[in-house]
Design a protein around this nucleic acid. Structure first.
Lengths: 344, 344
DNA sequence: TTGTACGCGTTATCAT
DNA sequence: ATGATAACGCGTACAA
């Protein structure tokens, strides 16, 4: 059955280009996609002209099946509306664009169960790489993920995790402990003697590291951690936790350390709604340095994590064959703003 | 050449499953993927068992080439780190997940040139749909986009634009003019008599509509628009524009309307850095109602756009065959917060 | 250098 | 209901 060359309803195929240019499929393929170029210029121009005229674009799916490897990298985040993941995704997208890769994105909604099934579903795309940015727990509800990741890797895909990862899985480390420690030290220098930590539940590595680092830094020379309470990673969770906290006694001059900026921003709102003032009355600090923290008043004291760079590195850990697993953790620097004024 | 059944380096194929289950390729395909099910239960269980044991997952690329249609929807945004686009993408992802579709994301960086080339590149994926969320201009620098979109559509893909679109292209309308008008009216009711508008440059439909609506509402019963200045859609652009503005004379009681919340937040910072107070001195209003606006102090008065819903609808406009082009525009409601206190 | 022919993993048509 | 088998669009040995 012969097909009409005109644009019926589907895109121009390599076949069409070859016929239009009067060359073979192989030749057309070589000039348009093949890497090593050994085609006579006379043919080359003909093919390119035909391709341009027909508006030909290689079918990535077909290429993927033929090559056995795709040009897509999958990104798994907890919530793309969260500025933390937004900035991260931005870095991933930038790196992917540079490398000519396509990014597909999936949302876990912070549901470990869903995370597992998503990884499974994502496998269908046969992505070259998979970036896991959804915060991971070391606890029992991570069950089922590891086998799924192994399956992914044994398929030839490269898994990259943000933060701590099991052995055999690439990861981009962030100096959570060191950053939190430095932040706590700065707060001590500012004159704070008492702190309350609002962290995620135990087993979330990122949270545990930040809590440990903060505690170490704050208590090193006499500071006291009044309490460590637990909540989720959202603004509302931070608000609720702080609200409960403030129902009890929280003396003036206490600094509340939220496990992330998003949480800390919730804390700030709760402090105000409890009739207290953020800063001179109750100080608040966060972690991550999302853009919002610079625009709120008072500005949010935090620890700067280079989120865009983090995403960019993750993308490269996904595609670079000679990736070095022994990279130093991304440095995290404290940033002091108005939410933690010096105590007189 | 026979292939070893064991997991060498690539995923289990349908072929493997069929052989393992002792059935034909066709049968395996039918139970695993085919819609109409006409397979004996005895075979069905065998196939399912084999698939489970081998960890089989259908290769989407192969399916796409065979079926002639893919399961991916492409999303084009200006900047995924911008909370506006983040919330939008969230709605898109939710809808896609429900429909069993994959979302690929690309960033225009607000470069019209780049936008065109991205659409072209995206065609390679043969996505079922393309959602254009990068703000579009009616001006001359949109050159080259329309042909590219037509090429995409003639390929069988469904293009959906946010906001106004050329004839023949589906779009999700937002009541920018009405929302801005209502917001302006509310500001009048609060006692504001003078306003300054910071908009995007002319030709950006969304901006023009909001400016027109605001102007109409504000001047309807005697309010005065002191000035209309132009800037980009970013926080920094808003800051710079306001900074310039404040170098001149801006009387107390003036309200500055930023074309989007992101811009308005930049304006708020500039106002403060100019030594003025946000609210009682200079009031500020925005548009969109991004999450940040609720957490900053004072809270940002704005017009609520249901961004998540917007994304969700866009996704459905992409895949629903019986989509109704005559849908009413998404309603936009004013939200008054502390940045525009009542004037005594 | 160029073309032929086969394989990639899956779907769908057609007999059986 | 089931099983061969021809597509799908492309890459790539291998032959010419």
């Amino acid at each position: 059955m012969t097909r009409t060359p005109s644009s019926s309803r589907s895109a121009a195929t390599l076949h069409d280009v070859a016929r239009e240019a009067g060359v073979s499929l192989a030749t057309a393929s070589r000039v348009l996609n093949g890497s090593t170029r050994k085609v006579a210029d006379s043919y080359r121009v003909k093919v390119e002209a035909a391709a341009a005229q027909l508006g030909y674009t290689a079918n990535l799916s077909a290429q993927a099946t033929a090559r056995g490897t795709s040009a897509v990298v999958a990104l798994l985040v907890a919530d793309i509306a969260d500025p933390y993941f937004g900035q991260l995704a931005s870095g991933v997208a930038r790196g992917a664009d540079e490398a000519g890769l396509v990014v597909t994105i999936a949302i876990t909604e912070r549901d470990p169960q869903r995370e597992v099934s998503l990884v499974r579903a994502l496998r269908g795309q046969r992505p070259r790489g998979l970036i896991l940015a959804a915060s991971r727990t070391t606890g029992p509800d991570a069950v089922g993920l590891d086998p799924e990741l192994e399956a992914f890797q044994s398929m030839g895909g490269q898994v990259v995790m943000l933060g701590p990862a099991p052995a055999g899985i690439r990861s981009i480390a962030v100096d959570n402990a060191g950053g939190a420690r430095a932040l706590a030290t700065r707060l001590r220098d500012l004159g704070y003697d008492e702190a309350i930590i609002i962290g995620a539940r135990e087993g979330i590595q990122t949270s545990d590291d930040r809590i440990d680092g903060f505690t170490r830094g704050f208590t090193a020379d006499g500071g006291r951690i009044r309490d460590v309470v637990r909540c989720g990673f959202t603004r509302d969770a931070g608000y609720d936790a702080a609200e409960t906290l403030l129902a009890g006694e929280v003396p003036t001059g206490t600094v509340i350390f939220g496990i992330s900026d998003v949480v800390a921003i919730g804390v700030m709102s709760a402090v105000r709604d409890a009739g207290r003032e953020v800063g001179t009355d109750i100080a608040v600090a966060g972690f991550d340095d999302i853009a919002t923290g610079r625009d709120i008043r008072p500005g949010l004291t935090t620890a700067h994590v280079p989120l865009d760079e983090l995403g960019y590195r993750a993308l490269h850990a996904t595609i670079d064959d000679d990736w070095d697993p022994a990279q130093p953790a991304l440095p995290v620097e404290p940033v002091v703003r108005g939410s933690t004024p010096p105590r007189g």
